[in-house]
């Protein structure tokens, strides 16, 4: 067991690197497989000392469900943005709002911010306050293209995106 840890310090990342290499070359010839294996071994060996330890996933099925839900939301909400963009500029109600975060670790906040950016109508701008201490309440500053009801939007972000993320991590 210790030798596995020594040779493959981050097995999942190695597997991912290997798959990406195969996809890049788009072939399963022996040479590519071999070279991919070498890279999947070498790169984690070189960089694993520098990595920041992230929490593992607790619930992979919830992660897949979350990914599919986000994809669906991207498609649906883009159609709403079509209407907003093609309508007159005066009808837009742009706004900056602050969403209080319950999440604490960096990885899940990053994923939440990316999700908020990808679902149309909102772009995450900043996590406030900068350089927050560990147990300080953090906020996500979000720019909204057309704000109808601030409390409703905050509730939606928290319920639809933050709650599943809390389940996953």
């Amino acid at each position: 067991m210790t030798s596995i840890k020594k040779w493959w310090p981050t097995p999942v990342r190695s597997l991912f690197l290997f798959l990406v290499w195969i996809l890049l070359n788009n072939s399963v010839e022996f040479f590519h497989l071999f070279f991919g294996l070498v890279l999947a071994w070498l790169i984690p060996q070189l960089i694993y000392k520098f990595r920041l330890v992230q929490p593992g996933m607790k619930n992979p099925t919830a992660a897949i469900r979350y990914g599919l839900m986000v994809l669906w939301d991207i498609v649906v909400a883009n159609l709403q943005v079509v209407k907003l963009v093609l309508g007159p500029n005066k009808r837009l109600r742009p706004a900056f709002i602050k969403v209080p975060l319950d999440l604490t670790d960096n990885l899940s906040i990053t994923i939440l911010a990316s999700t908020v950016s990808l679902t149309p109508g909102t772009v995450s701008a900043e996590v406030l306050p900068l350089n927050a201490s560990k147990d300080e309440q953090r906020f996500l500053l979000v720019h909204v293209l057309d704000l109808a009801d601030e409390a409703e939007l905050i509730r939606q972000v928290k319920q639809r995106y933050e709650a599943p993320l809390k389940e996953i991590f």
Binding site: I74, V75, N78, V81, V82, V85, N89, L92, P94, S117, L118, T119, P120, G121, V123, H143, L145
Partner: peptide, 21 residues
């Protein structure tokens, strides 16, 4: 959206989402 919308912050909405989709 990039050309039409009034300020930078609203313009950002077009390219990041519609273009990605």
């Amino acid at each position: 959206a990039l050309v039409k919308l009034p300020d930078f912050y609203t313009r950002l909405h077009g390219p990041t989402k519609a273009t990605t989709l």
